[in-house]
């Protein structure tokens, strides 16, 4: 659809800008409401100040089947502390306008429950860039594709090492912004080494028509970031940041630790 401009520059533009600087884009995940709504916004601001290229805000959900223990524990704590869907829109609003696109990572039921069109409208008016949907495949996403077109929102679907060439083409075609490649089979969480399947998947996704491919799930260290940067357009890090928040004794300590890691990851993702 033409004639509707995004309320915020899309994530594709931010990834391209990083590429022009000779870097893979750094995309950081934090869940809203952990350790509190204000605390998560503060933590996200620290990541923006440290130079991340895009933010992925997790909408806390009761049944996060694509998440490992670090993120699961964080969203359980956020929900126990009373986090609501509206808090995610408030967090987006507080973080938009700082030159960094804000994506929301959400399981599908909160979107479905609110009404897909209403959710998209609320996200757009908060200044959000789009959605990453780990349990929504393009085959089931007709309403979301229409709503995201109407509001100029990015839509990021996932591919996995198990995806067939046919599936890769379906997903690549449906994505807007980038295609999210999971480095390994499995749920989110830190791993010692990067799976060798990541590079192959990125190559296959590109061959299937994906314009930009970023790699997440099991990407946590500067060494991983450097490796991913050598073959992908972006590096997505989540659990490593969330763990820093949960281990920090104070908000200031959390901000410092997040900032340090983001800086090291950004440097590592710069192509030598």
């Amino acid at each position: 659809m033409t004639g509707v401009s995004p309320s915020c520059a899309g994530v594709g533009k931010a990834i391209d800008a990083a590429g022009e600087e000779g870097r893979a884009a750094l995309i950081a995940y934090l869940p809203v409401g952990f350790p509190s709504v204000a605390g998560s916004v503060d933590a996200a601001k620290a990541l923006i100040d440290a130079g991340v290229d895009a933010l992925e805000l997790g909408l806390p959900y009761s049944d996060p089947v694509m998440d490992g223990p670090v993120i699961e524990d964080a969203v359980v704590a956020a929900l126990a502390a009373g986090a609501r869907v509206d808090d995610t829109f408030r967090a987006v609003e507080a973080l938009a306008g700082r030159g960094v696109p804000i994506l929301v990572m959400t399981y599908y039921n909160p979107v479905y429950r609110r009404g897909v069109a209403r959710f998209a409208a609320d996200l757009a008016s908060a200044g959000g860039a789009g959605l990453i949907t780990p349990d929504l495949i393009p085959d089931e996403a007709g309403e979301w594709i229409a709503a995201s077109e109407a509001h100029g929102l990015d839509r990021v679907f996932l591919v996995a090492p198990s995806s067939t060439a046919e599936r890769l083409a379906v997903v690549a075609e449906a994505c807007r912004g980038f295609t999210y490649a999971t480095s390994t089979m499995g749920v989110t969480g830190e791993r010692a080494t990067l799976s060798g399947r990541a590079r192959v998947l990125v190559e296959r996704a590109r061959a299937a028509g994906a314009e930009r491919v970023c790699v997440g799930v099991g990407v946590s260290t500067p060494a991983h970031a450097a490796e991913v940067a050598s073959f992908a357009d972006g590096v997505i890090v989540g659990s490593a940041f969330v763990r820093l928040v949960s281990e920090a004794d104070s908000a200031a300590e959390a901000r410092q630790a997040l900032s340090d890691l983001a800086g090291r990851l950004r440097e590592a993702a710069t192509l030598g």
Binding site: M66, E140, F157, S163
Partner: peptide, 12 residues
């Protein structure tokens, strides 16, 4: 009905 699953499971 339908399929609301991670893409990783679609092939299986």
């Amino acid at each position: 009905g339908g399929r609301h699953v991670p893409e990783a499971l679609v092939a299986a």
